[in-house]
Amino acid sequence: MTINSTESSVFQVPKTKGTGSITTDAVMESVGMYVWFGPRLVLADVNLKFPANSVTALIGPSGCGKSTFIRTLNRMHELIPSAALAGQVLFEGNDIYGPTVNPVDVRLRIGMVFQKPNPFPAMTIEENVLSGLRLAKIKNEKPAELVEKSLTQAGLWNEVKDRLGNTAGSLSGGQQQRLCIARSLAVNPNVLLMDEPCSALDPGSTLRVEETIRELSEFMTVVIVTHNMQQAQRVAQFTAFFLSEDNNPGYVVEHGPTVDVFANPIDTRTSDYVNGRFG
């Protein structure tokens, strides 16, 4: 069954199942999100709430649209020329796709960490941490303190405090990824989106990053895409399971507290996936 932008209503999106126990006020919410690449509908009717100061994990097999979805949450999706979407992303009650909203402001409040570590190679470690401020022309009176604070939050300070003037390329992959996290934290976003932040890291670095995520969630809302079930269980209070079957667009099969999704899934496909029977 093929679906294009004009006949999207043909596809009957199954209702998202879940325990519905997310009653707290959401800081961010996606409402009826449909996403296209050219004529191809890749995500259908995603409704997710992200409560303040919580970690939500997005899980699901490859190609189900998790990464695409997370990129709609801070308007990175529109950078792909063929991209289109329908629906809303409410951030503190306002649609980030509203006609008067500047995407630059959105991305300042909703930061992002990518799958591959991507520090700026032409900058030193210190400059990388401060790059967000300089890129967005934000003044900071005490840059040295901010560098220490951000690097400490990202769990990197002790390893690099003596060589802040080295280029970012001199760090290991795991350190580079934590540097990218520090860079995102330096602009003090309200929400941090992480697209498989640990997929290129060794187990040790992964644990460090997870520790960082847990600490961040005390004052920040985190959304993390992961292929690692254990990771989702370790860091996330909430989990959403994405699936796309038979070339149909992806949708959210089940969404709820992580404990419920993993221990008592409502949908059999969720239990099959989290127990490693497919995907």
Binding site: N74, M76, L79, V104, D105, R107, L108, G111, M112, F114, K116, N118, P119, F120, P121, A122, M123, S131, G132, R134, L135, A136, K137, C180, R183, S184, V187
Partner: peptide
Amino acid sequence: VPDDLRSAALALGASRARVVSMVVLPTAK
């Protein structure tokens, strides 16, 4: 210049012009 760097800069809240002048051009120096 890898697209990753452009994405990273944009995700940090940079305008297109800042991405070019602070990330793309220095990287390609």
